[in-house]
Design a protein around this nucleic acid. Structure first.
Length: 724
RNA sequence: GGGCGAUUAGCUCAGUUGGCUAGAGCGUCUGGUUUACACCCAGAAGGCCGCAGGUUCGAGCCCUGCAUCGCCCACCA
């Protein structure tokens, strides 16, 4: 090594991320700077991001690493711009999701949740969740997340429960909460109701059966629900049925023998469909229930909660509906009631998003929130740009959903979650909100009451996270940092989470919870396929970070990946950025050995060097603009390209001649140029590749090029660059 | 049934308000132990920017239509 200066020994070998990253994270954490209250300087303008709390029931996957990278980049950039960056971490108990995961875990151990009492099950799941939470937090550290652990929030914390209860009570007071008999989306396997968002519609081709129903012919794909059907509904204007009057009774030979049926005229009946006449099953169909409600019709349960036929099905009682259909059709054929079968009927059926089992609509009393008034305010907020979308196209999707919103079923019949603070009447079924546990008899009928055994939909609590996490109503953070600046998350939870946060945030605080929504796409494998355990194409970000370095992983997530689009993850790309890390490291070795003694107070640049510095500064301005406009994908590529192909390949190469020459003024100018551009480019690179840049920073002499020991609190170069 | 997105080099993808002689990474080929780096350097090949029209001095970018792939939404007769 012919360098003018002594170079630390570690610079003599390639950059070794494995030796550096863990130590560097510890240094950052020990510095206290993740907490914005500890940052040097005057009172800083706040910059706040609430981390989407990962579900504490597993380990981080490639999607988590994506959001960690994007958000940490935002946080670090804004911190360097002189703001009081707060990234508030959390984790979600993830009610139903976790219960499903835990049941699988129990099954593996040869146990079942039915072996345990509610309390035992809850306690085991709590331990399970806390263990995973801890492990996940270790993984977030591996990924370099500069979040403030001192403000961490868990969705089962007392303060969360308290505010969630307050919201629940307030919704009731405002008439936005009800618990009436209503069609619920019920999964016979999981034994719980869902909101409309938890359904997945699946296209099916099923036989469509026509049955003789007295003088009518009615069509159905679901003969197994028809045992109790005693109303036949036709459109009031349907000429074919003008001979029948509304309310007229007719004698019908039906599945279990002769019955008396009633003709109902209702516009819900579509003359174009089937024969134009249909019978209704109010207990197991939302549409039928509405018709029944309109005309005050009777209703009866046919299928139990486990998907088995009830005694009304006669000889079929107790049979699973999946086995019963064929046998029932056979029976109907024998009775001579089957008139026709259309084999190729295509329709969509709702299924459980978790197990794929067909959803069985069931009349249930569950807690529902009236969403229309809440959605209306959210629509105004979005239209007024009180909250804006970085990927504009999601704005329209959001508005469309809000304008067609349905009431939200927030009750789940599961153990794991925040219990619903209410009493139910044993006698009349009336539900009463009871936060303070003061209700001991039914307010309607005076009957005995029992605590509601249900828990809240997990999104009901996470949907209130921003204001709760900041300490609403009297927390200092709330006063200073609400509304937060950005929410960054996957577009798949736009409805589940983002829009509900907007609605609930507006409802409780009167303000939007964040000013901007940045939605990223899904992470797929290199062929563009969804990652899944069964396909075996899951990339574990922590393993990859171990192999190539977190910085390389992070660059692969950012550079060239357009906001909102799904990204294909390839290890080739990560490998490329690992090389880049080493390149930056080696440039450091050269620059520090040749120019660490550069004069900073008196930077006399020769004309050619001035041009180089000006070009660099103008690129910094461009990159700064990209950062402000959330174009991280461009900013990342630009700094990469400049460092490698301009600074290393041209500026450094050309400096060699000058440094070997005899002209002291030229030498002095070169040294100053190398040091300025190199140290400034490290700053620009820091939000993207925090570990590497911090590792190099430790070797930069502390003078005009460096103010602080840690690059993480240095200024973004746009703010420091003096005139050239 | 309604809506959205994608289509650019062999592969994976950038290309910000129309100025592009269309770029990057990986791969391929040729040549290099030049006083940081072989996790490197110098260079090369490789593209009717899905198809067909249109607007414009100028279109990868804007408009219309079509094709293919993907995604989201929708009350199961």
């Amino acid at each position: 090594m012919k360098g003018a200066l002594d170079i630390p020994e570690e610079f003599l070998s390639p950059y070794n991320h494995a030796q550096k990253e863990e130590l560097l994270y510890k240094t950052w954490e020990a510095s206290g700077y993740f907490n914005p209250d500890n940052l040097p300087g005057e009172e800083r303008q706040p910059f706040t991001v609430i981390m989407p709390p990962p579900n504490a029931n597993g380990l981080l996957h490639a999607g988590h690493a994506f959001f960690v990278t994007l958000q940490d980049t935002m946080i670090r950039y804004n911190r360097m711009c002189g703001k009081g960056s707060l990234w508030l971490p959390g984790s979600d108990h993830a009610g139903f999701e976790t219960q499903v995961v835990y049941e699988k875990y129990l099954a593996k151990e040869g146990r079942s949740r039915f072996d345990l009492s509610r309390e035992e099950l809850y306690d085991e799941m709590l331990q399970f969740t806390l263990d995973h939470k801890k492990e996940m937090q270790g993984q977030l550290r591996v990924l370099g997340a500069s979040c403030d652990w001192s403000r961490e929030v868990f969705t089962l914390d007392d303060r969360v429960k308290k505010e969630v209860y307050t919201s629940f009570a307030q919704l009731e007071e405002d008439g936005l909460l009800y618990r009436n008999l209503r069609t619920a989306h019920w999964c016979p396997k999981h034994q719980t109701g869902f909101s409309d968002l938890e359904l997945v519609y699946e296209e099916r081709m099923d036989p469509f059966y026509y049955f003789q129903y007295g003088p009518f012919v009615i069509g159905t794909v679901r003969p197994e629900t028809k045992f109790g059907d005693k109303y036949v509904v036709v459109h009031p204007d349907d000429e074919r049925y003008s001979a029948y009057e509304h309310g007229q009774t007719i004698a019908v030979e039906w599945m279990n023998g002769p019955i008396t049926a009633t003709v109902i005229k209702d516009e819900a009946s579509d003359p174009e469909k089937g024969s134009g006449a249909m019978t209704i099953t109010p207990w197991h169909s939302a549409v039928d229930w509405e018709i029944a409600q309109r005309h005050g019709l009777a209703y009866e349960q046919i299928i139990d909660d486990r998907g088995k036929l009830l005694p009304v099905a006669g000889e079929f009682a107790g049979m699973d509906i999946r086995d019963a259909r064929g046998k029932i059709v056979e029976m109907m054929q024998k009775k001579g009631l089957l008139t026709r079968v259309d084999e190729s009927y295509t329709h969509t059926v709702p299924t459980c998003y978790k197990c794929g089992r067909e959803i069985e609509p069931q009349l249930k009393k569950q807690w529902f929130i009236r969403m229309k008034p809440l959605a209306k305010k959210a629509v105004s907020a979005i239209e007024n740009n009180d909250v804006s979308f970085v990927t504009e196209r999601y704005k329209r999707i959001a508005l469309h959903w809000l304008e067609n919103i349905q009431d939200w079923n927030i009750s789940r019949q599961i153990v794991w979650g925040i219990s619903i603070p209410a009493k139910l009447c044993v006698k009349c079924g009336h539900g009463m909100v009871d936060i303070e546990d003061t209700i001991h008899s039914c307010t309607e009928c005076g009957g005995e009451v029992t605590p509601d055994a249900d828990t809240f939909d997990t999104w009901f609590s996470s949907g209130q996270l921003p204001f709760i996490a900041l300490g609403y109503p009297d927390g200092a953070d709330y006063a200073k940092r609400y509304p937060t600046d950005v929410i960054e998350t996957g577009h798949d939870i736009l409805f589940f989470w983002v829009l509900r946060m907007i609605m609930l945030g507006l409802y409780r605080t009167g303000k939007v919870p964040f000013r901007r929504v940045y939605l990223h796409g899904m992470v797929r494998d290199e062929k563009g396929e969804k990652m899944s355990k069964s396909k075996g194409n899951v990339i574990d970000p922590v393993t990859v970070a171990g192999e190539y370095g977190t910085d390389a992983l992070r660059m692969a997530y950012i550079a060239g990946n357009v906001p909102g689009d799904s990204i294909n993850f390839s290890t080739d790309k990560i490998r490329g950025y690992k090389k880049f890390a080493n390149k930056v490291w080696n440039i450091g070795r050269f620059v520090l050995s040749e120019a660490a003694d550069a004069d900073t107070d008196n930077m006399l640049l020769v004309d050619g060097d001035k041009t180089v510095l000006r070009a660099w500064r103008s690129l910094v301005a461009e990159i700064t603009d990209d950062m402000e406009q959330y174009r991280y994908h461009l900013a990342g590529e630009k700094i990469y390209h400049y460092i490698w192909h301009t600074f290393a390949d041209t500026v450094v190469e050309e400096s060699k001649t000058a440094l070997n020459g005899d002209d002291d003024a030229v030498k002095r100018s070169k040294k100053a140029l190398l040091m300025s551009v190199y140290t400034e480019s490290l700053r620009v690179l820091h939000p993207f590749m925090p570990f590497l840049t911090e590792a190099v920073w430790a070797h930069i002499p502390k003078d005009g090029y460096k103010k602080y020991d840690l690059i993480m609190i240095e200024s973004w170069p746009d703010a420091i660059s003096p005139e050239v």
